[in-house]
């Protein structure tokens, strides 16, 4: 069963993942113009892109523990999911800047002095080089440094969770649950491995 699923997962071409990923913002845009996002489509789109971006990043963080603790293997999706998540977060920022705040002096002021914006910006800036190096050429060129660089994902996603908590008004459970899941997925990687070597490698072979 698992093997069949893993085979199917591997067979999904990357372009299909990117296509599916791109339909979401396109749908948001369509819904926003046709009333599907309520009376304030700007905020609705801004929040949806941020939240779904965080969710996709969480999915990215889930791939390696899934491989380790179950036999599900979504490794072949990880790059595409990471790039799609970056794309959502970038759009989240652009909607905030262009459609929400609009006034460029106010955008600058917010980026420089609002702590929750600063945290979000740092997260986005960390994701930028990761997205730019999500290709085979970069992996070859950077060698062992590539793995090191891409471990920054943990920090970026954690900051995304913190950014989500910081923008709430009263007390809400949801953003704390997100951060707890993110921190849990990072911590789980620190669990001691039962045997030497990389069990995932054998599985993937």
């Amino acid at each position: 069963m698992i093997n069949t699923l893993n085979t199917l997962v591997r067979k999904v071409p990357n372009w299909l993942l990117y296509l599916v990923g791109a339909t979401y913002p396109a749908w948001l845009l369509y819904a926003g113009f046709t009333g599907g996002l309520g009376v304030d489509p700007v905020k609705a789109m801004e929040h949806a892109l941020g939240k779904v971006g965080l969710q996709v990043l969480i999915a990215v963080l889930l791939i390696s523990p899934l491989r380790r603790f179950t036999k599900f293997n979504f490794l072949s999706w990880r790059r595409a999911l990471g790039v799609i998540a970056f794309f959502y977060i970038l759009l989240h920022f652009l909607v905030w800047m262009v459609l929400d705040v609009q006034i460029i002096s106010q955008v600058k002021a917010d980026i420089l002095k609002r702590p929750y914006i600063i945290v979000g910006m740092i997260s986005l800036l960390i994701l930028l080089p990761l997205a730019l190096t999500s290709n085979n050429l970069s992996i070859r060129k950077l060698g062992p440094r590539w793995r090191k660089l891409h471990k920054m994902t943990y920090l970026a996603v954690a900051l995304g969770g913190v950014h989500y908590i910081m923008q709430t008004k009263g007390f809400e459970y949801e953003p704390y649950i997100y951060l707890a899941v993110v921190l849990g997925l990072i911590a789980i990687r620190k669990l001691p491995k039962k045997r030497a070597g990389h069990p995932a490698k054998r599985q993937a072979a």
Binding site: G32, L99, D110, Y116, M166
Partner: peptide
Amino acid sequence: HPRWSQASERPIGGGFFAKR
């Protein structure tokens, strides 16, 4: 407000391109 400017506001009901 500590987390955002109060210098301008977004009128609700103007859709995607409502000017501040």
